[in-house]
Computed example of a mutant assay.
Amino acid sequence: MPRAPRTRRSKYRALSSLALLALAAGAVTACSDNDSASDHSASSSAPSSASPGTGKVAKAKLHMVDNGGHRLAFYVTRGSASTIVLDSGGGEYSSQWKDIAPKLHTATGATVITYDRAGLGKSDVVPGPWKVESAVSDLKAGLGQLGVTKDVTLVSHSQAGEIANCLAKDNPEMLSGAVLVDANLPQFFTDEEIPRLVAATQPEVDAAKKDPEKPENRQLISTAEGFAAAHKAFHEVTWPNSVPATVLVSEKTPFAGSPEDAQRWRDAAASFAQEAPNRTLVTAKGTSHEVPTERPDVVLKAIEDMFAAQH
């Protein structure tokens, strides 16, 4: 994807320091389902790719879906009954995957779906703190309206790792596998780490509150609300052993300036991978947190390998 303007990327790095996620303020559990959906759709052209074996160009179409009164933008390149869902990092739009999605469709023949989370891209803004249970509900509602209820290979970058963990925990039957790209994992959010993250990002949060209507500031503020209590709960979330996962961790991590935090990030990825025999740890050499942009080839290989192993 094109590199974002400096102001947006500055806020994105601040979000990275928070590990790019927050749950509901005062939440007592980390994950819960709250589905509400009605069918609305429209279509427009988006990036395209060649359909495997046909020579025809497959175009992604925009579908606007409704969940609880707000609309979300889902981009669908139709293929086989198997589906690959690409979930962007915090503060990023579906365009984060614009170079990867067409190549995946060509390589696998699968239906490939990207989407804009609430408040980003073409999706409606939902006021208040960022809530993982709401994000899970939005994703499930969108997939349900698109007829996708099983055989999903879920690819999640950064903040989307929280959505993946909660979706997998409560709906393992939907997933055939997952690729977690430098993703937020429960193992990282210990009682020692959470206060360090809050303290490190407080100056950026305070600055954002001076102009709360800017989209990047709104995302940072909503992400920061209720962070400590919510992540204490997230630390208890467990990934189901029935769902295989590849953990793709960046070498530099989101904490290149803090060796201690960077090592904890790497240790969390290793710990997650070691908890079941159907999990694999891969290190993207030389990369920062923005692995999909810096090493799309590594991300593509991890997804293609996971998809091939399950089909």
Results as ranks from 00 to 15, higher is better:
49 S>G: 15
50 A>F: 06
51 S>E: 12
51 S>Y: 04
52 P>V: 12
52 P>Y: 01
52 P>K: 05
52 P>I: 10
53 G>P: 10
55 G>V: 11
55 G>S: 11
56 K>V: 00
56 K>G: 05
57 V>W: 00
57 V>H: 01
58 A>Y: 00
59 K>E: 13
59 K>P: 01
60 A>F: 12
60 A>L: 09
60 A>M: 13
61 K>C: 03
61 K>Y: 04
61 K>D: 14
62 L>T: 14
63 H>F: 10
63 H>Q: 13
63 H>D: 11
64 M>E: 10
64 M>C: 08
65 V>Y: 03
65 V>C: 04
66 D>L: 11
66 D>G: 02
68 G>L: 06
68 G>W: 00
69 G>V: 07
72 L>N: 06
72 L>H: 11
72 L>R: 07
72 L>D: 09
73 A>C: 10
73 A>W: 01
74 F>I: 04
74 F>V: 04
76 V>T: 13
78 R>F: 01
80 S>V: 04
82 S>W: 00
83 T>D: 08
84 I>R: 03
84 I>F: 03
84 I>V: 15
84 I>A: 06
86 L>M: 09
86 L>V: 07
87 D>V: 14
88 S>N: 12
93 Y>I: 02
93 Y>F: 07
95 S>K: 13
95 S>T: 15
96 Q>S: 12
97 W>A: 06
99 D>N: 15
100 I>C: 04
101 A>E: 05
101 A>T: 03
101 A>H: 03
101 A>V: 07
102 P>W: 07
103 K>V: 06
105 H>S: 09
105 H>K: 02
108 T>F: 04
108 T>G: 02
108 T>P: 04
111 T>D: 07
111 T>C: 07
113 I>D: 10
113 I>C: 08
113 I>V: 15
114 T>Q: 06
116 D>N: 09
116 D>Q: 02
117 R>K: 12
118 A>D: 01
120 L>T: 15
120 L>M: 15
120 L>H: 13
121 G>M: 05
122 K>E: 14
122 K>W: 09
123 S>W: 08
125 V>W: 08
125 V>G: 00
125 V>M: 08
125 V>H: 14
126 V>K: 09
126 V>L: 13
126 V>Y: 03
127 P>Y: 03
127 P>L: 01
127 P>C: 04
127 P>A: 03
128 G>E: 10
129 P>A: 15
130 W>Q: 13
130 W>L: 13
131 K>P: 01
131 K>H: 04
132 V>A: 06
132 V>L: 13
132 V>Q: 01
133 E>Y: 11
133 E>D: 15
133 E>I: 00
133 E>S: 15
134 S>G: 02
134 S>D: 14
135 A>D: 06
135 A>R: 04
135 A>P: 01
135 A>M: 08
136 V>I: 14
136 V>D: 13
137 S>D: 10
137 S>H: 00
137 S>N: 08
138 D>T: 06
139 L>V: 10
140 K>W: 07
141 A>F: 00
141 A>N: 11
142 G>P: 06
143 L>G: 01
143 L>T: 05
144 G>R: 11
145 Q>K: 09
146 L>V: 07
146 L>M: 10
146 L>E: 01
147 G>F: 08
147 G>I: 08
